[in-house]
Amino acid sequence: MKHKEHRLGVSEVNLVKRQLGLRKPIISENLNAAIAEIDKLYGLDNVVFHEGSCKINFSYDASRLCLQCVEDILVKYDIPIKRDWWTRFKEGYYLFVDQNVKDNAQHEPWSCHRVPPHTRR
Rank of each mutant, 00 (worst) to 15 (best):
P117F: 00
R23E: 11
S63H: 01
N104R: 11
I73D: 09
V97E: 00
E29Q: 00
D72E: 15
I35V: 14
D61F: 08
S53P: 11
Y77H: 02
E91S: 11
H107K: 14
T87D: 03
S11R: 06
R88S: 01
L44S: 08
K90H: 07
Q106T: 03
P116I: 01
T119I: 05
V97K: 09
S28M: 15
V47G: 04
A34S: 11
D84M: 04
H6P: 01
L20V: 14
L44R: 07
K102G: 13
N14T: 15
Y94G: 01
W110Y: 04
V97A: 10
K4W: 12
L95E: 03
L67M: 13
H118M: 06
K90R: 14
E29W: 15
D39K: 14
N30E: 12
K40Q: 13
C69N: 12
E29F: 15
W110C: 06
I73W: 12
H118L: 13
S59F: 12
R18Q: 15
T87L: 03
W85T: 03
C66P: 04
E51A: 13
R120L: 09
I73T: 11
F96W: 13
R88G: 01
F89P: 03
Q106V: 05
I35N: 09
Q68A: 07
V97Y: 10
K40V: 11
P25L: 12
K40R: 15
D98Q: 01
V101T: 12
K55T: 15
K17H: 09
H6W: 09
C112I: 02
H3W: 14
H50A: 09
L20K: 00
R7P: 03
H3L: 14
L74E: 05
R88H: 02
H113F: 03
R120Y: 04
G21D: 06
F96T: 07
K102V: 06
I73F: 12
E12T: 09
R121E: 00
G92C: 06
E91G: 02
R121G: 04
H50C: 05
R23Y: 15
P80A: 09
P117Y: 00
P117C: 01
D39P: 05
L74K: 01
P117T: 01
V16N: 08
L67Y: 08
N14E: 03
E29H: 13
T87Q: 02
S11H: 10
R121D: 07
R64Y: 11
G52H: 13
K90N: 08
V10G: 02
F49V: 11
A105Q: 05
N14I: 05
Q99V: 14
I81V: 01
A105T: 02
C112M: 14
R7G: 02
G21I: 06
R7S: 12
S53W: 06
I27N: 14
Q68D: 02
E108Y: 09
W86A: 05
Q68I: 04
P116L: 09
V101Q: 05
A34F: 06
W110F: 12
S63G: 04
R7F: 14
R7D: 10
L74D: 10
V97Q: 00
A34E: 00
K24Q: 12
A105N: 07
L44Y: 04
V16M: 10
W110R: 07
I26P: 04
E51Y: 08
L65H: 05
